[in-house]
């Protein structure tokens, strides 16, 4: 316990001190990492803690981003309306997805979530008058009180930290424990009198809400939204963040997000072939680190402690 507190304190000091130490480019990069860490953690609530695989998680991220961009840029509404509206749309979409997809399991569920998410992508891509189609919607301004890089960083840091606390509390609550029970065995939880479907539904909606929050932060970070926000590549990217870090932990996906974004930053500055590199990372991770970086660390750590 003391070690965990020490770790948290250390992390807090590092993250608060960061913008005063490193150049602003890296403050921006860290902001992006924090946003995607939240996105990846929200997906892990589904995959790691509820046992529901999803390949459509970008839909919640993207719909919230699009809602904010359309309301702010096209309809000139204030961020106090746009931001909550984005989250609401993500939650509503999460409910719709859950209603349609939750009868399926395993790879069938992956396929259905992928197809549903692609519907949302199709709307963003096709409805040019509202969304700008392929060109996206530029011209979003950050709210006045976080217009510079450092204050926006602290807003993101605060919201991501608060979300992490909520997620940890959720996972440790009776509800969270029930979710993990469902992950291990649906039929046993059913037999114990738990309403499995309702638990999964709520988990899906909560995961969508946090993905929506990540999308909302990212659209303000980017000041631009395009169909890429919703694309299946983004869903797959967040899935690999979860897996490269370690499924079924919250720290793992955050580390995975950092790893992927740093790699992307390094590789795409060197070569055009980011997609090829990403593909190789996917294959290599699956083959050599199926339990993720956290898993690798644990295996090493446990191996050393054995007599």
């Amino acid at each position: 316990m003391a070690r965990i507190l020490l770790f948290i304190a250390l992390a807090a000091v590092v993250f608060v001190a960061l913008p005063f130490v490193v150049p602003s480019y890296y403050v921006g990069l860290t902001t992006k990492i924090l946003i995607f860490a939240l996105f990846a953690m929200s997906l892990d609530l589904l995959i790691g803690y509820t046992g529901l695989a999803s390949l459509g998680h970008a839909a919640f991220f993207g719909i919230s981003a699009y809602t904010i961009a359309v309301l702010s840029v096209k309809l000139r509404m204030s961020e106090w309306i746009a931001f909550p509206a984005g989250l609401t749309m993500a939650i509503a979409l999460g409910a719709v997805f859950a209603l349609l997809a939750l009868r399926a399991r395993g790879s069938y569920l992956l396929m259905i979530t992928l197809a549903l998410a692609q519907v949302v992508w199709g709307i963003a891509f096709g409805w040019r008058t509202m969304t700008g189609g392929d060109d996206g919607l530029p011209g979003l301004r950050r709210p006045a009180f976080v217009s510079d890089e450092t204050s926006f960083y602290f807003l993101v840091l605060g919201l991501v930290a608060a979300s992490t606390v909520v997620l940890v509390a959720l996972i440790r609550s009776p509800f969270g424990l029930a979710l993990q029970g469902i992950r291990e065995s649906e039929s046993r939880m059913q037999a114990l009198g738990f309403n499995v479907w309702r638990h999964q539904f709520v988990a899906f909606v909560i995961a969508a809400a946090f993905a929506g929050l990540a999308g909302a932060l990212y659209v303000y970070y980017n000041r631009f939204v395009s169909p890429d926000f919703l694309h299946v590549v983004r869903s797959a990217e967040v899935l690999i963040m979860v897996i490269i870090g370690g499924v079924g932990t919250l720290l793992g996906p955050a580390i995975g997000a950092a790893a992927i974004i740093l790699l992307e930053d390094i590789i795409s500055s060197q070569t055009q072939h980011w997609l090829l590199a990403l593909g190789i990372i996917y294959v290599a991770t699956t083959l050599f680190a199926p339990r993720g970086l956290i898993g690798l660390y644990r295996e090493r750590f446990m191996a050393r402690r054995k007599p």
């Binding site: 995959i47 695989a53 390949l55 395993g106 790879s107 992956l110 797959a236 899935l239 690999i240 897996i243 499924v247 072939h273 997609l275 090829l276 990403l278 593909g279 190789i280 990372i281 996917y282 294959v283 991770t285 699956t286 083959l287 199926p290």
Partner: peptide, 29 residues
Amino acid sequence: FLRRFHLQELPQTLLTFGFLFIFADLMLW
């Protein structure tokens, strides 16, 4: 590749996704 992960849908899906990216980039090349 896929045989090693028989009936493990997550690793299999990721593998096929990895190949999708690799092939896409090679074809573009």
